[in-house]
């Protein structure tokens, strides 16, 4: 049989998917054991037990100084910033994307400026944002919004332009106004596509959040990582990285499920 046609069945698929994870884990444990044998206090590759202890300490016991459960407090703080920023971005993208894509006048006015502005590296704006908006939450939300909204706007605008012209003409022959076409023809078709775009922007959104938290903060997942980095506490950093990855994965999964449940017709539309 040709390699090309060799398809793993379900059991094999799961086993193959687990393989790289298991290999990474095994390699980590070997490296960790070797370093710990040499220096039992080594901080670089802590044992799984040490990481378990750290997670217990951060997630299940209140911090003796503040009385807070640090890991939940950090998660709550980061997630509220991230979700607020993504909600703002998504809303801006939907409104401006449709306007720019649908109305030639708006496209001529705002298309070029959005195109240029989306090329500004958002992290380079961070020092400016901190000066204008202070070191609080506003600057962090603004960074994420700037970093994600402009790309989302461009994406929505392009997808509006991708809609078959016939649809818009047909709606017009049936007597629809611009407002009605925007609301009843374009908007429903954009929503599931916007979910796709937001899924792709999750990664950048996390990146900007953690970068902003690293610079000035008193809670948050990125704050904690950059704080404990000062004393090389890999037993805290590694579980936090895994936790962030899991959160991002779950957000992605939730958006995918939302898309499937709310817009069941879209899978067919995408295939076509």
């Amino acid at each position: 049989m040709r390699l090309l046609n060799l398809k793993p069945d379900r059991t094999w698929s799961i086993a193959l998917a687990a393989l790289p994870f298991a290999a990474l884990l095994a390699a980590y444990m070997m490296g960790s054991a070797m370093r710990l044998a040499e220096n039992p206090n080594d901080k670089l590759l802590p044992s799984l037990t040490a990481m378990g202890e750290a997670v217990k300490h951060y997630a299940l016991e209140p911090d003796p100084r503040s009385g807070l459960y640090l890991m939940w407090n950090d998660t709550l703080s980061s997630m509220s910033l991230l979700l607020t920023a993504l909600a703002i971005s998504t809303f801006i993208a939907l409104v401006f994307g449709i306007l720019i894509g649908l109305l030639p006048i708006m496209g001529a006015t705002f298309g070029p400026v959005v195109g240029v502005a989306s090329m500004v590296p958002p992290l380079a704006l961070l020092p400016i944002l901190f000066i204008i908006m202070g070191l609080g939450d506003a600057a962090k939300i603004a960074l994420i919004v700037i970093g994600t909204a402009l790309k989302l706007i461009r994406d929505v605008a392009l997808r509006v332009e991708d809609l078959p012209r016939e649809q818009l003409i047909k709606a017009q022959t049936l007597g629809a106004s611009t407002w009605q076409i925007g609301l009843r023809v374009v908007l429903p078709q954009m929503l599931p596509r916007l979910i796709d775009s937001v899924r792709l922007e999750l990664g950048p959104a996390w990146l900007f959040l953690i970068a902003a938290e690293a610079i000035a903060s008193d809670s948050g997942l990125g704050y904690r990582i950059f704080l404990v980095r000062r004393y090389l506490a890999m037993d805290v950093i590694i579980p936090y990285v895994i936790w962030i990855t899991l959160l991002a994965f779950l957000m992605d999964l939730a958006l995918r499920l939302l898309q499937r449940k709310a817009f069941p017709w879209f899978a067919g539309a995408r295939a076509a």
Partner: peptide, 9 residues
């Protein structure tokens, strides 16, 4: 794979 990863460590 394990050998490669271990040598990395």
């Amino acid at each position: 794979a394990v050998a490669a990863a271990a040598s990395l460590a």
